[in-house]
């Protein structure tokens, strides 16, 4: 499969510890450019832990320890001389629960640009509008820029968070169970959105919803108890899985 697609991120021998507890066991995984890679598995299998390694978000958790390499365009993002702030700008993230800032809609969207030193008012507005259009939220909020973002519905908040992520023009977007707290209609809209975003971005999505993985992703990784059990094209994982555990999980025998 690798001869057709361009590897954007490669995890090599990744191990991760919470205290003494080994949470990820020697994970090797490629993430392909302009594709959607889904990571599935039962709760506690390490899928969220893994995705949060890709923009070094786990560093915020005290008493944790990382081993291995995560190469972004061939550069190990855990090298001591790599600027973590630059990595996070390149690798955006959308979280499990919508987490808009308790600020206005516009301030939520201009935040990322401002912290990255952009002052040009016209450029900021242009980026804000473009991101809202990309996140399919423009029509709903175009007259409400000064309203608090907390007054939006849950689904709108999550799309606002996606738009906020897009404003700084990342190259990779990580979705950590983005629909976990949303109703089916909002979930549907987010899935359509992800489908469109992959034209421009490389996408990794963690989900506990197998139908969602089957619908939106090109590649699927199945994790179980901190191990990567199987990785392949999504249609293969869901039709002819090689490992018995994968088969049992996707047919709902456990999880």
């Amino acid at each position: 499969m690798e001869q057709y697609d361009n590897v954007r991120i490669r995890a090599e021998e990744v191990r991760f510890f919470y205290g003494d507890k080994l949470a990820l066991k020697d994970i090797n995984l490629p993430i392909f450019e302009n594709k959607v890679t889904a990571i599935i598995g039962p709760s506690g299998c390490g899928k969220s832990t893994f995705i949060r390694l890709l923009n070094r978000m786990n560093e915020l958790i005290p008493n944790t320890h990382f081993e291995g390499k995560i190469l972004l365009d061939g550069v190990n993002i855990y090298d001591p001389d790599v600027d973590v702030v630059a990595i996070r700008r390149k690798v955006g993230m959308v979280f499990q629960k919508p987490n808009p800032f308790p600020k206005s809609i516009f301030e939520n969207l201009s935040y990322g640009l401002k912290v990255n030193g952009i002052r040009d008012r016209h450029y900021i507005e242009e980026r804000v509008i473009k991101s809202l259009e990309e996140a399919a939220l423009w029509n709903e909020v175009k007259d409400r820029f000064n309203e608090s973002a907390l007054r939006l519905s849950g689904g709108q908040q999550q799309r606002l968070c996606i738009a906020r992520c897009l404003t700084v023009e990342p190259e990779v977007i990580l979705f950590d169970e983005p629909c976990a707290s949303l109703d089916p209609i909002s979930t549907n809209r987010i899935e359509e959105l992800i489908e469109n975003l992959k034209q421009k971005y490389t996408i990794v999505i963690v989900t506990h919803n197998m139908q969602q993985a089957a619908r939106v992703s090109d590649y699927t990784a199945f994790m179980y108890m901190g191990e990567l059990i199987e990785f392949d094209r999504t249609e293969k994982i869901f039709t002819v899985p090689r490992d018995k555990r994968t088969e049992e999980y996707i047919t709902g025998k456990f999880g």
Partner: peptide
């Protein structure tokens, strides 16, 4: 909420910017 700090850091803000803003 920790999620607000994460949101800010994930946008490429430094820790100091996250605290201040």
């Amino acid at each position: 909420p920790q999620s607000l700090r994460e949101a800010s850091l994930a946008l490429g803000a430094t820790q100091w910017q996250t605290i201040r803003k």
